[in-house]
């Protein structure tokens, strides 16, 4: 029980910190918007082509942005060494991880949902009929990105060249998420949309496997 209550308190702290400044959300939002606009110059986004390319582009933009966004979740504990204080104050270090990854997943999901209208309008893909399934794909993928990404950002925060290192560690590791979520989104935006059970099942498997790995090894990542 203490795990859950600790996590809830820490999650509240993460959300309060972010929503005071909203720095992370704003910059990530603008970053992805820029990428989406720039992508339009690399090919002709007519309707049929967008249906084929758009989901992949969206997820690629999203993955790049998240590799920048996740940097800060451990870095901002460093100036005042607040991570040591957190470690001392909770009974199970896993709750620090759980709170950070839940906060990251929420931030990612929020950015995705905020971007969806822009994306729909600019790439001319209809999303309203499949919105609930799309939201589920977004949720599963954001959770996967933040589970693996939070663990890797704890690693990269302790190394040199951390700004470059995190994407290098994260992007190959998250290939399954990119493939599965792009395919699932493509299935939903198809002319004859269908529910991508395989894609969603795959994302769930990824989430469960990496959550278990972090439950087992997460505390070592926070060692002094």
């Amino acid at each position: 029980m203490s795990l859950l209550s600790n996590t809830a308190v820490l999650l509240g702290k993460e959300l309060r910190t972010e929503f005071r400044s909203r720095e992370l959300l704003t910059t990530t939002f603008i970053f992805i918007l820029t990428i989406i606009v720039l992508f339009s110059f690399t090919f002709d986004p007519t309707s049929d082509e967008s249906r084929r390319f758009a989901p992949g582009l969206f997820w690629l933009a999203f993955l790049f942005a998240s590799s920048l966004m996740l940097q800060s979740c451990f870095l901002r504990e460093q100036p005042n060494d607040t991570l040591s204080a957190l470690r001392l104050s909770v009974s199970d270090p896993f709750s620090i991880f759980l709170a950070k990854l839940a906060a990251n997943a929420l931030f990612l999901l929020l950015t995705e949902l905020l971007l969806l209208p822009f994306f729909t309008v600019m790439y001319n893909v209809p999303v309203l009929p499949v919105l609930h399934w799309l939201a589920l794909v977004f949720f599963l993928a954001s959770l996967g990105i933040s589970i693996a990404g939070t663990a890797l950002s704890a690693i990269s925060a302790q190394a040199r060249m951390r700004e470059l290192l995190l994407p290098l560690l994260m992007l190959p590791l998250l290939t399954p998420i990119l493939v599965a979520s792009a395919e699932a989104t493509k299935a939903l935006l198809d002319r004859a949309p269908y529910v991508p059970w395989a894609g969603m099942g795959f994302l769930t498997v990824f989430d469960v496997v990496f959550l278990t790995a972090i439950w087992l090894f997460g505390e070592y990542l926070l060692e002094e």
Partner: peptide, 19 residues
């Protein structure tokens, strides 16, 4: 840290292959 990353990477290999 590299041991932990090595563990995550090895776990990831079959998932990448499957996907």
């Amino acid at each position: 840290l590299s041991a932990l990353f090595g563990i995550f990477a090895f776990i990831d290999v079959p998932i990448v292959f499957g996907a």
